[in-house]
Amino acid sequence: MTLEEALNFAASLPGGERSKHYGQPAAKVHGHAEVSTGHEPDSSFVLLIDRGDVEMLMATEPDTYWQTPHYAGYSAVLVRYEAADDDRVRTMIGRAADQARAKKPPRRR
């Protein structure tokens, strides 16, 4: 799955929209980023999902879901473009969207 495909899928979910996150292309749900470009744009995109899910994804599919030290300890996991199972990636994007919808709207500055 390419970044563009991930962004389009995420933006198509209820409450989703194309936006920016730290100045980079992203998809947000109710103002919360769920998919973004990240720091490894040549190989992966970032999925912002609960830390428990991050740990589970890296343990079960380390060839697809991974982190650099930059993301360690945060609710973010890198997703390789050549993921073996695009359906699971879409499921995880959907889960991230569900988690974003459950959060309070971000404060506007």
Rank of each mutant, 00 (worst) to 15 (best):
S44L: 11
S12K: 11
P62S: 03
F45E: 13
T60G: 11
D85R: 04
A6T: 03
F9L: 08
K103W: 00
R88S: 14
A84I: 08
P106I: 01
K103A: 10
Y74L: 09
E17S: 05
Y22S: 03
T60R: 07
K104F: 00
E55S: 09
D85K: 09
A10Q: 07
A72T: 12
S43H: 08
H30F: 04
T64F: 04
A59S: 13
A27T: 00
P41A: 03
A6L: 04
A6W: 00
A10M: 02
A11T: 00
R80G: 14
S36N: 13
S44W: 00
D86V: 13
R80F: 15
A33Q: 03
G94N: 10
G52L: 02
R88D: 15
D53V: 04
R109L: 09
M58T: 09
G23D: 04
L57C: 11
D87P: 04
E61Q: 14
W66I: 14
V46P: 09
V35A: 07
G94Y: 10
H70T: 13
E40F: 07
R51W: 11
L78M: 10
L13K: 00
T68P: 10
P41N: 02
R107H: 09
L3P: 07
A84P: 15
T37F: 01
Q24A: 15
T68A: 11
V46M: 05
V29C: 11
V89F: 01
D50C: 11
A76T: 06
T2G: 06
A83F: 01
G73M: 13
A33S: 01
K104S: 12
Y65C: 05
F9K: 05
G73I: 12
E61S: 14
A72H: 07
M1V: 02
M1Y: 00
L57S: 06
T91E: 15
G38D: 02
A97V: 05
E55Y: 05
P25A: 12
A72I: 15
R107M: 10
A76F: 11
A102C: 03
R101K: 10
E34L: 08
R80M: 01
R80K: 14
D50M: 06
A96R: 01
R101A: 13
Q24P: 10
T68V: 14
H32C: 03
A97I: 02
P69S: 10
P25I: 00
G73W: 04
M56V: 13
T64Y: 02
F9N: 06
E82M: 15
S44Y: 08
